[in-house]
Design a protein around this nucleic acid. Structure first.
Lengths: 187, 187
DNA sequence: TACATCACTCTACGCGCGTTGACCGTTGCA
DNA sequence: TGCAACGGTCAACGCGCGTAGAGTGATGTA
């Protein structure tokens, strides 16, 4: 009996695997998340995961792509840089469709070589460069780097370590209190 | 023939194991550091590691004790809080004897349950409370939390992710550029 | 209707890990 | 000097992991 097309089935299981992988990688990191657990959560055989993604590294890479877009920062004026960067962070962690992907990358970025490289070279360096391009005065690169460091610290404290009351603070409070902080680096 | 006393031997191998463990945990984190590798680096049998520390978790706990001391922060005036916190960070990572222990704890604090708990409850919360106690005005706790977040971000960018030019910046430059940033939270 | 193709599952392999218990040689006490 | 205690090693166990290859039944095609 005809139930679902092949493409549909394939696409559905791939989506399920990817969602399960994102969730588990985000929760416990690369090492502690097992193919078997991902498969179980996706209601699928472990071997199917391999068939779709080849190996665990590739699954991780597919599950953690951080939206490279940081248009907000590129569009900002020197004066709105702080607000733009905060919006960029909040968007990635609280609004994006593949929200878990950002947490997953960050969770493993201290212990997984590729994740660290992506975090440094594709996430932080790019944003640092975008910020530095808008800065005047001395130490533009270093100030932009410290800017990025503070943003990462905020992200980790709020979304991974869940330090209170940072984790539960409203977006408004974060903007209100962090913008002056970041502006000390941009002015 | 009499070579070394039992106590001396025991103490020596324990020290060697601890140093090796600190180095490996700091380099690759809890999961990727193996008992076998620690033993090899300490020129010792893996079983001896178990005999000294019981199991891998206990070895990790022994190797990563973050110096709880944060007297600098407790002694600071509201005005010198930023400088004191920076000194606290720099001391732990660049001057302490068991320097690697701080990196080891931080390396695994996103992926190892106990490390995360220690990081949050013993390192961040305590310092956050010490900072909050010196703050006046509204949102003292939240501002102190953001303060802690920025410090963690700086530590991770400089010592773990090694984001340039933050990683290679002089202590003087860090003080000069970061103090105004942190003061935006303490004033 | 017959056959090829595909998504998917089953079973199992090999490996490296943390951990254990028996063993060995030195140390130090009676 | 004899013997218990101890630091240290050796060989091995069991487990859970990533992964591979053969098998199965539904799907699509001629």
């Amino acid at each position: 009996m005809y139930v679902t097309s092949r493409d549909e089935r394939r696409h559905r299981s791939e989506t399920a695997i990817l969602a399960a992988a994102r969730e588990l990688f985000a929760e416990v990191g690369f090492e502690r998340a097992t193919i078997r657990a991902v498969a179980a959560q996706a209601n699928v055989d472990p071997a199917l995961v391999m068939q779709h993604f080849g190996n665990k590294e590739a699954l991780f890479a597919a599950a953690t792509q951080w939206p490279g877009e940081h248009q907000r920062i590129l569009d900002a004026t020197p004066d709105s840089l702080a607000a733009a960067a905060l919006d960029d962070l909040l968007a990635h962690f609280e609004e994006a469709d593949d929200r878990g992907g950002a947490v997953a990358l960050m969770r493993s970025c201290l212990t997984h070589p590729t994740a660290m490289q992506v975090m440094r070279d594709q996430v932080m360096c790019e944003r640092q460069a975008a910020v530095a391009g808008k800065l005047t005065g001395e130490d533009a690169e270093l100030r932009a780097g410290l800017f990025a460091a503070c943003m990462v610290g905020l992200g980790m404290a709020r979304y991974l370590i869940r330090l209170e009351p940072v984790a539960s603070a409203s977006q408004e409070d974060l903007h209100r209190l962090m913008e002056p902080v970041l502006k000390a680096l941009t002015e």
